[in-house]
Design a protein around this nucleic acid. Structure first.
Lengths: 278, 278
DNA sequence: ACCGTTTTGAAATAAACGTTCCATCGCAAG
DNA sequence: CTTGCGATGGAACGTTTATTTCAAAACGGT
């Protein structure tokens, strides 16, 4: 019978990055000083494991290599090499030949359709990764709270923001949340439908459209919560909205992919729906 | 004076992946058999260089390690290690802490706003990478050709495809290309505006909306070119459209990020504009 | 203060890997 | 057929990197 004390039995190494993270958390707090340093550093710089040597990672954590070695074994791996394999596989799975394919598309030559796709793909990917990096969680949580309490959500977004607003209208409808899309289809006459208990969600990028600004100030006058989805720096809007959610969209040429904005908008919508049900 | 014959002078190793690719192309065709094998294999599997050993890469190319070694030196590197460094740097630049940040967001717990953002970010990224991988260049080129010749481009897209269609309408307008957005705002009465010389660009995903199908069949009856943007498998639509562009959108929950569709649509629009001007 | 236990880190060891060397092969020109 | 030269691949070499070892230090309990 294998001994089964507080130490984890060997040979049950995490098979996925998520499992790795889980065990890391489970171990934290019940470790000696040096090993805790290892855990902290790995948790913060997991992506560096795939490409660094033990010596480099250990140096980063401020421990000697042997300590890092021990830590790997405590995590269930036979050693650093085995642990590294996990992260290398995760890295290649995400991009199997993606880079190559992208390069081949670009090679078609500037202006060629395939090369243009490659450019927009690249822009979209960068935008989305920037969203993950720069997301302001506080602002996001505030926005969800405000919108979840609203009786009706008013959506403002014109020109290039209109696709986002219209998608949100569709999603809110599917989710059974009362929302009104302010398309300018019959002029600006919709100002009056803003009522007590409502909230405004405005999507806008410079140059800000007059319609959107009008809606924002009008909602402000009524004392309604205003959430603005825009890109940094949002100096001009800071005074207008209660909550500013910023997204950095990398654009190619004159047009932006909207990938990041839509991802954020969708998450916002689903989060509001979840909050409402509870 | 250093000798300056057909062989490339050493010490001018490519500094970027693009430069690498360029030199690879320049060398191709004027190399001995084994080295040509190296060039071919590297060109096709550039993303593997960062994480593989010489032995692995050489095996993949079907050559002994020493041949691969020679090839690295011909490319201007001191050896394999130096060449690998180039690709490792490219790999880390693309994702500096991205993976970690994403994991931290997810760690907020299911249903939490931040975790939802992480999920949609992930879905968007996967969709976009899938687009790069699976793009049908032939279909894309056909689409561009058809649309470039059209007098007016008609855009069809309802429900969740509507954001894409509306964005295309905005972009075409900015590009000075005549395009009409078929929103269902005043019923289905717009069938009659389809005229000779026009083309239809339909964005639709299952379940296909009746409005879109009606527009497609009507355009077909008039003998107009029909381009359909949808997701695979497009069995049901294959008979209807002249050109089928497929995009695999990975969706989270019931909602899709549209990242890939929009990227493709944008590229299509810009490509059409470029083609028209020439 | 003493003793057993755990933790720690430097140095030794082992493995993996990149790199070089050289004998052999294939080929083309003489 | 012979000669010369570049190409080729296997094996040896040296370096880097992972892993283990072990003696010293730190710790906790009595």
């Amino acid at each position: 019978m294998p001994k089964e004390d507080t130490a984890r039995a060997l040979g049950d190494a995490p098979q996925t990055v998520d499992a790795f993270r889980e065990r890391l958390l489970g171990l934290s707090g019940q470790l000696p000083r040096r090993l805790q340093q290892c855990a902290d550093h790995l948790g913060r710089h997991m992506d560096q494991i795939a490409l660094s040597t033990v010596a480099q990672v250990a140096h980063g954590a401020g421990v000697p290599p042997s300590a890092m070695m021990r830590f790997c074994q405590i995590m269930g791996f036979s050693g650093y090499a085995e642990m590294q394999r996990l992260f290398r596989e995760a890295l290649t799975r995400g991009t199997p030949d993606y880079a190559t394919r992208l390069a081949n598309l670009k090679a078609a030559g500037a202006g060629q359709p395939a090369a243009l796709v490659a450019e927009f793909v690249e822009a979209g990917r960068l935008s989305i990764e920037a969203l993950a990096r720069d997301l302001n969680e506080t602002a996001l949580n505030q926005s969800v709270a405000s919108l979840a309490q609203a009786r009706t959500i008013h959506l403002a977004g014109f020109r290039r923001s209109f696709p986002v607003a219209s998608y949100l209208a569709y999603v809110f409808d599917k989710l059974g949340i009362p929302a009104i899309l302010h398309d300018g289809v019959a002029g600006l006459g919709n100002l009056s439908i803003l009522g007590p208990g409502d909230a405004l969600l405005a999507i806008t990028f410079p140059p800000y459209s007059d319609e959107t600004l009008a809606l924002i100030t009008h909602a402000k006058d009524l004392g309604l919560p205003v959430i603005i989805l825009t890109d940094p720096p949002a100096n001009q809007l800071a005074a207008l909205g209660d909550t500013i959610l910023t997204v950095t969209e990398i654009d190619f040429g004159a047009f932006r992919s909207l990938s990041a904005v839509i991802a954020l908008a969708l998450a916002l919508a689903v989060a509001v729906a979840t909050r409402r049900e509870t």
